[in-house]
Amino acid sequence: MKVRINTYVNLRTELAEIHPYNNPRDIYFSPGDIINVAETVIGENYKGNDLWYRLEEGGYVWSGADNDSKITVEPNFWLKRFGLDLLQQQFQQKLSNVSISILDTGIDEMHLDLKDTVNLKFNAVSQNQPTKDADGHGTHCSGIIIGTAKNKISGVAKGAKLNVCKIMNTSSGSFTGMTVKGMIRALDKVGDQSDVISISAGVNQYDKELHDKIKAYAEKGVIIVAAIGNVSPEDRTAKYPAMFDECIAVGSLNNSLELSDLTVRNSKIDICFPGELITSTLPNDSYGQKSGTSMATPFIAGLAALMKANNAESNYAVFRELLKDHAVLKQKEQFQYYAIKNEKIIL
């Protein structure tokens, strides 16, 4: 992760503390400098902020130095971090045989990094309408999975075939247009043509028809990856379909690989992956950062696609085992969760 410094700040060499002898060579950063952050650590509390950055080159910088600035994370940072870029190269050919369906807000299929990736598209909200993404959420998720890197974003499963189902017009609030029926229509449309389905959305209520549908496709070997949901002031509910046993439920980690505060805490979570400040594609050839379990999900869906490229017969159960192999049990307050290990993933 790269962070742009916003004000003058000293490099602390020994400890994450402000001490007269903690910078003997008098090294400092000026506004605009970019530092390579290896991890965030808790250090001395200064001005109410005890969060520090540990730099890849060594030493510590108080995080307050970038309070008013944008943290700039290098695109594709997480691919490299977990070796996904290597797996992508390894299964590049086979990925073309893998179909990934994204059930979201649609897609800007003319984006520089998404052009010529769409195989099938369907609007489940208003069936006679296009799948154009007016929200950005779907386009963002698509970039994470399938970005072509023609300009900037490289997707985890770059080269795979993409099916786009618009199951909601917007991604937030009470007027998204999303219904269980819409989700079912979408599954009916693309289920049989999918190896992996990525759903960065969900509903609060259990629905048997939806469950049966998910179950049926899962039994056919389709790996369905869904976001567990984000915490909001009025809603702390884990979402369906992530709650179905047949789905891989994904939570979000922060940049320190700790559980994100916005992740709904539920034991059904199979895996947590970085989901904060993820840079990806946005409509109209733009790029931007989004955070949430929605962002962590396409990473895992992409990983599922890589596994499918490696072994077409694999299914959600196999994938779950793979994830467990690459997860570490962590605890935040009383909640235990599986987080992706801070290591390169090997299939």
């Binding site: 909200v125 208003s126 309408q129 007016a134 929200d135 017009n169 009470s174 007027f175 219904t179 819409g182």
Partner: peptide, 21 residues
């Protein structure tokens, strides 16, 4: 006008969403 096939509010774009909101 913003009611979808599933009889729910589904403003199609940001302009419709802005009007609805």
């Amino acid at each position: 006008k913003y009611i979808s096939d599933d009889k729910i509010f589904a403003p199609a774009d940001s302009l419709e969403m802005d009007t609805l909101v």
